[in-house]
Design a protein around this nucleic acid. Structure first.
Lengths: 132, 132
DNA sequence: CAGGATCCTCAATGATACTG
DNA sequence: CAGTATCATTGAGGATCCTG
């Protein structure tokens, strides 16, 4: 999502590193990694339900197809967010789990969630009450 | 991106509030708000280049079309991230600026960017050196 | 100047069937 | 069981022209 074809020369140095207008923006990189329709859901299940088999994972991520589950897992593994462990027994057994990278990501996502909550409510009243 | 058609019953209460599998997940809400191809770039420019006119904004967000700039601005305004101020003079003058909501968002995005940077490097060596 | 209206394209995703 | 292979779909985004 967010391609980086542009060659912007941002005058505000303070925003260097977070502006997607820049080349190699880590932020757009982040969105590439966790973007897509299923990535976060998959990470969520992997995180809460420990090492889990492909078929069980598919049951927990409701509505996902083989195509998407497979490709998502492959990308997540490539990016170092998911471990794949294969047991060569019959029938085949493969277990997926989240890496420590995901642990680091969770608190950030929680912050993002809290922000979104605040945004949704700001249209109504300006409550200062924190949920966490 | 991340639609919420599913009616998952997540057994792990600890992840309530961050799991996109859940209904009304604030996280997927957040991604709806800042997702899309241009939202972050637009916010970035609005943040660094203060109140800015439509045409100037379009010049700074390289490659964006009228369709996308207009629709993105409209959505951002609806979500309370952007202020639109119209001066009824001829020729028409409209100025856009970022709201305080965006200020709260920036540090979170910076964290996300730092995380992505770490992820990208973890494939090579396991340096403990922080960049910030 | 600041958009609206239309039509079009393509990449992400879905559906279905098959295999090591 | 854990995927692959193919084909179909679709909606975000793009191109172009038009207007208050």
């Amino acid at each position: 999502m967010i391609t980086k074809k542009t060659t912007t020369r941002n005058t505000d140095e303070a925003l260097h590193g977070i502006c997607p207008c820049m080349e190699e923006c880590p932020l757009s990189k982040a969105i590439e990694i966790i973007g897509g329709k299923w990535k976060l859901q998959i990470l969520c299940v992997l995180k809460s339900d420990g090492p889990i088999r492909y078929s069980e994972l598919k049951k927990k991520v409701h509505g996902i197809t083989n195509t998407m589950l497979t490709s998502s897992l492959k990308e997540l593994e490539t990016d170092g967010l998911v471990n794949r462990k294969q047991y060569n027994v019959m029938p085949l057994r493969v277990e997926y789990s989240a890496t420590e990278m995901v642990d680091d990501l969770i608190p950030i996502l929680i912050q993002l969630g809290k922000w979104a909550k605040k945004v949704s409510q700001s249209g109504k009243v300006d409550v200062a009450g924190d949920t966490l």
